[in-house]
């Protein structure tokens, strides 16, 4: 088992901010188009963190032009240039799947953000 940790250690990033469900994050995603690379920002509420170590992921939800958009990112993905914590939220649950049914204002109130 230590051998697996050895391999994972080479893959894992350091300096990832400590964040949890309810926080608002701004994620800088590297987008490769042809031979060009640019940064795309995706800002929204963390509604879930999943897994541990190398396989950890998090789900971010934002409402774009009235349409809810959710993206799942691996925490240690090299495609993520930067994870920025915009606001700290205060929630009572680890998984905020119920916010999908709520209006934008209600989400703000729920997450205290």
């Amino acid at each position: 088992m230590e051998k697996i940790k050895l391999v994972e250690a080479t893959q894992m990033k350091s300096g990832i901010p400590d964040f949890s469900s309810g926080d608002v994050l701004n994620v800088h995603v590297r987008v490769i188009e042809g031979d060009k690379e640019r940064i795309q920002q995706f800002q929204g509420v963390v509604i879930a963190r999943h897994g541990a170590g190398m396989n950890a992921t998090f789900t971010i939800r934002k409402v774009s032009d009235g349409v809810g958009v959710e993206r799942i990112f691996p925490v240690h993905s090299p495609r993520l240039a930067k994870i920025e914590k915009v606001k700290e939220g205060h929630v009572r649950r680890a998984k905020l799947y119920y916010v999908r049914k709520l209006a934008a204002k209600a989400i703000r109130q729920k997450t205290n953000a």
């Binding site: 697996i4 391999v7 994972e8 893959q11 590297r30 490769i32 190398m54 396989n55 691996p74 240690h76 993905s77 090299p78 495609r79």
Partner: peptide, 11 residues
């Protein structure tokens, strides 16, 4: 088992 990222960032 575990997973790694390749050059393009695929798991």
């Amino acid at each position: 088992m575990t997973s790694i990222f390749d050059e393009s960032g695929q798991v």
